[in-house]
Design a protein around this nucleic acid. Structure first.
Lengths: 152, 152
DNA sequence: ATGAAATGGTTTACATTGTCAACTAATTTT
DNA sequence: AAAATTAGTTGACAATGTAAACCATTTCAT
């Protein structure tokens, strides 16, 4: 049959992005196979950066996901003993999310693997190309983001 | 709290990719809101390009997805009256996928919207930047693809 | 030519993810 | 104080990924 792909890269952009995302996440998951959690690594990093002050709402904003999904992530991470919900004494609707000691222990490895996989992704690119790619990707994402909102 | 994102773009690559993919697909879906299908647009295009010869296995390869998912997609598209399974007379295990007249009618619009959204995504980029971005994205994808396979 | 292995496709099952609606409790607005 | 908003939870449903078991057909090895 005709070569519908016209080379390796004329799949629609959306497909390439989602495929690449999956490859990225799969590689991280693989390299962290020794851990007893299999997802929500980046949520852990954000919670750590929050220094015990991050709420679920804020986590949802950072991750650009729904609050329902955040509940599930936090349930998962608390179930695995990585995160604790601490009621915010000032606003008692909120939780302050904090990492357990166990999570603190594993965090360096998680961060290292994420950096490692990022380096793998950029292999063969010069520093300039890498910078260019990041800024172009940012533009593309913002273009799509704007178009989505304005279309409402 | 500390700015854990260090600017708009230091979320992990995987997250940016998957988020951008979602924005892309959502926009396409929105612009094709008048159709009676809500997904699998690209599968239709591939089936069309196959000129009545594409099998489910080949579709799975092009889409880089599992054959089970292909069954679901083809079930969906035949259910909506867009695709027909025609038994391949040479190898009777296979189906040749063909578009119905209805699908042929709608195809131009689908293609146009996909191009339109791609143009939106690249808005503000010079032709050179666009070319650079596509080739860098290809490199990144291949890097991750290789790393995944070699890690087995 | 026959039995074994491989291939194309289907079905069932289960986990994850996104989304929506309804809800509680607490806080802010007026 | 009542009304509206906010943070978080719960339940439900659809979409998607993945794995295993299975049929029918075809190809391979002897």
């Amino acid at each position: 049959m005709e070569d519908v792909t016209h080379g390796s890269l004329s799949q629609p952009l959306g497909r390439i992005f989602s495929r690449t995302a999956k490859l990225f996440l799969k590689l991280i998951h693989e390299k962290l196979g020794n851990l007893d959690i299999e997802r929500s690594y980046y949520a852990l990093i954000l919670i750590d950066s929050g220094r015990g002050l991050l709420t679920q709402k804020e986590l949802a904003d950072y991750l650009e996901i729904d609050k329902v999904s955040v509940v599930r992530i936090v349930d998962y991470l608390t179930g695995k003993g990585y995160v604790k919900r601490v009621i915010n004494s000032i606003d008692r609707r909120k939780y302050s999310l904090t990492l357990t000691d166990k999570a603190q222990e594993k965090l360096p490895e998680i961060k290292a693997v994420m950096e490692e996989v990022t380096i793998i992704a950029y292999e063969g690119l010069t520093e300039m190309q890498k910078t260019a790619f990041i800024s172009l990707l940012d533009i593309v994402k913002n273009n799509l983001s704007k178009a989505n909102n304005s279309g409402l």
